[in-house]
Design a protein around this nucleic acid. Structure first.
Lengths: 203, 203
DNA sequence: AACCTATTTAATAACTCTATTAAATAACTC
DNA sequence: GAGTTATTTAATAGAGTTATTAAATAGGTT
């Protein structure tokens, strides 16, 4: 096929495959075939499968954490802020529907992924959580918010967002939903989650 | 090693391995080694790896659905009923902490698991959901409950329960929790989830 | 003991996988 | 255009995979 930038092509295609099938589920031969190049080329550019996987993981996990960091916090009500978090997360998941399956699936036995999560959280996550914590405490001191912990709040939001996508896959199969119904399902969930979270933190 | 019932031993050991490492992550050679028998014996009893996996999946998914069916509904308040659902689910997950990772991990690329979920849901799930729906509608007609949908309610509960365990794995690594802190984390989540869900359905 | 059946093993065919090597081709530099 | 470096390929070593086969062993019955 000889695309003009094989190095990047390989990364792109490998990302898709790894996200869909996990580390064990993809071979370098498969990657090469999907790219349309020789299998040795994958190793020429990335030396080992492990290394290729690591690079992709880092990129994707970083993207995921970044969406939280990119939410503006200035001049905004707390309700609005929470809504923005939920929207950003659902938006990301719509663009990356494989992400929850990938992370959760690999988390189990691929200690590489777990280590990476830890490192990247130290780098990006702590600051984000810190910011949100300050916001929450400020609102709590004003009595506009009950005494929910930031950890619980963030776990609640992430749980409901992520599992909407897992649920969607299940229901799509079980209830034979078409793509229009799937879209409607996710929109309904988004509205529902906002309402649920907001009602849970009102003081 | 010659345990007195190799057929069952193989199933037991294979279950552990598959749950931890997924279909692709386990070889029949590995199973045999862990059992302490010859690799051919695994195939003698279960013919193919696929078939062994299928049997294990069916058993485990069935167990998972059954915990919902086993919750008594008679002579019980709705609040109590919801609490029982959450307790049953968290209880199951404590005994099977690999289950969420397994299901979600395999759901992605192992269409076998998805098909099975569908079949087993048709067999067990529909009845359970139907029962809960009747309960909800009865309470709603009495005005003791807001107009939450049964689907949303069940997804909410399952999301929060399941992701508590995923979160636990993440936090254990990231925040270096010891096993006592992990246990406390789960107990705190259980209480929190009960409160959250109950507050969300009050009319 | 001889027979039969169930269980278990060793050996192996036929693949597939990762990683490396040497050789071929393309692309740039002087 | 010759020389040098970068890219790409074919070939293959070496290990591991699933599944099958025939042979060995164990257990029970008559």
């Amino acid at each position: 096929m000889q695309k003009n930038n094989m190095e990047e092509q390989i990364l792109l295609v490998a990302k898709e495959l790894f996200m869909q099938n996990g580390y064990e589920g993809v071979s370098t031969t498969q990657v090469a075939k999907a790219v349309g190049c020789n299998q040795a080329l994958v190793h020429y550019y990335y030396r080992t499968k492990q290394n290729l996987f690591k690079i992709i993981c880092q990129q994707e996990i970083q993207k995921m954490l970044k969406i939280l960091a990119d939410i503006p916090q200035e001049d905004i009500s707390f309700e609005n802020f929470i809504e923005k978090i939920i929207e950003a997360q659902i938006g990301f998941l719509k663009n990356n529907p494989d992400a929850p399956f990938f992370i959760i699936g690999e988390l189990r036995h691929n200690s590489e992924v777990l280590k990476m999560m830890k490192e990247l959280f130290s780098e990006f996550g702590k600051e984000i959580v810190g910011k949100i914590r300050m916001f929450v405490e400020m609102k709590q001191s004003k009595g506009e918010l009950n005494d929910v912990s930031v950890e619980d709040l963030l776990i609640d939001i992430a749980s409901l967002d992520v599992m909407s996508f897992v649920g969607q896959v299940l229901f799509t199969q079980i209830l034979e939903m078409d793509s229009q119904t799937q879209e409607a399902f996710l929109e309904r969930r988004k509205t529902h989650i906002k309402k649920l979270i907001l009602s849970s933190i009102k003081s």
